[in-house]
Amino acid sequence: MTSWGEFRSAEPEFAELTQRILQRGVALVIATLRADGSPRVSGIEVVFDDSGPATELAFGSMPGARKGADLRRDPRFALHAAPADQSGGDLGDGDVKVSGRALWTGPLSGPVTGDAFRVDLSEVAWTGLNDARNRLVVRWWTPSSGLRSVERE
């Protein structure tokens, strides 16, 4: 299992960029798998929990929500943070995609009820523009291959 903290230790600058994008306040979308295998997308918010030995990327699901039921049955997910400003085709800081497995950690603690999950990372990807803003850049990290990058016209 790979925590966000392990990712951050392996690639601190890339983790800082992707975490900033995930926390910038733009709506996030998570894709889960329904019982019949078809995809479901839902809005979601994430938190970075520093209370344990490693920082965890975590999120919750309201009581009875289908995304929580989906994840308890099949923990695979993909999370997407779209570019903040797409007016005029600008990617701004870019977008981030995170995929992995959502591990159920029990009921949410505190005043909000529901299910709590933490993330076992399998990939973190960023798509944006190069410094000259004339090429698309894709950077992605996996626990087995580390950080890779390609540029496209």
Rank of each mutant, 00 (worst) to 15 (best):
A10Q: 02
I30V: 14
A54T: 14
P143H: 10
K67G: 01
W140Y: 14
L147I: 06
K97F: 11
G88I: 01
L108M: 14
D74C: 11
R135V: 03
S9F: 01
S87Q: 09
V150S: 15
R133W: 08
S149R: 14
I44T: 10
K97Q: 15
G146Q: 05
R72Y: 04
Q86F: 00
L147S: 07
G25R: 04
A69K: 12
A81T: 08
G43E: 08
P39A: 02
V98L: 05
R135S: 08
G92W: 03
L147Q: 02
V26W: 06
A81W: 01
P12D: 09
V96S: 08
F59D: 08
I21M: 02
E56T: 06
R66A: 14
R148Q: 15
A132D: 15
A31K: 00
A82C: 05
E45R: 03
N130S: 15
G25V: 04
S122K: 00
L79A: 03
G43P: 09
A10R: 10
A82I: 05
V29Y: 04
T142C: 07
V98H: 10
G52C: 11
L91G: 08
N134A: 06
A35L: 09
M62T: 13
G37D: 10
A82L: 11
R72E: 14
Q86N: 04
M1Q: 07
P63V: 05
A10M: 00
A65F: 00
Q19E: 15
R135P: 03
L17E: 13
L136G: 03
G89V: 01
G60S: 12
F7T: 01
G37R: 11
W104C: 05
T113W: 03
S87T: 11
D49A: 07
V119R: 12
P53M: 06
M1R: 05
A125C: 14
G94V: 04
T127M: 14
L71W: 07
F117N: 07
T127H: 15
D49F: 10
F7G: 01
A84K: 06
L91P: 10
Q19H: 10
A132P: 00
A65C: 00
G60V: 03
V47H: 01
R135H: 14
A58V: 07
L121C: 04
R148W: 13
T113F: 02
G37V: 08
V29H: 06
L91R: 08
F14Q: 09
G52D: 12
D74Y: 06
R133D: 11
A116K: 13
D49E: 10
A65Y: 00
V98Y: 08
R20K: 12
E6N: 01
R135T: 10
H80T: 12
I30M: 10
G5K: 05
R148S: 15
R148D: 15
A27F: 06
E153S: 12
E56Q: 15
F117W: 11
Q19F: 01
D70W: 09
L103M: 09
R40W: 02
G60H: 04
D50Q: 12
L71R: 05
D93C: 00
L17R: 15
V46H: 02
R139D: 12
D36R: 12
E16H: 03
S144M: 09
S149L: 10
L136S: 08
F77G: 04
V124I: 13
A54R: 11
A10F: 00
I44Y: 01
V46W: 03
V150G: 11
G106E: 13
S144P: 02
S99W: 04
V47A: 10
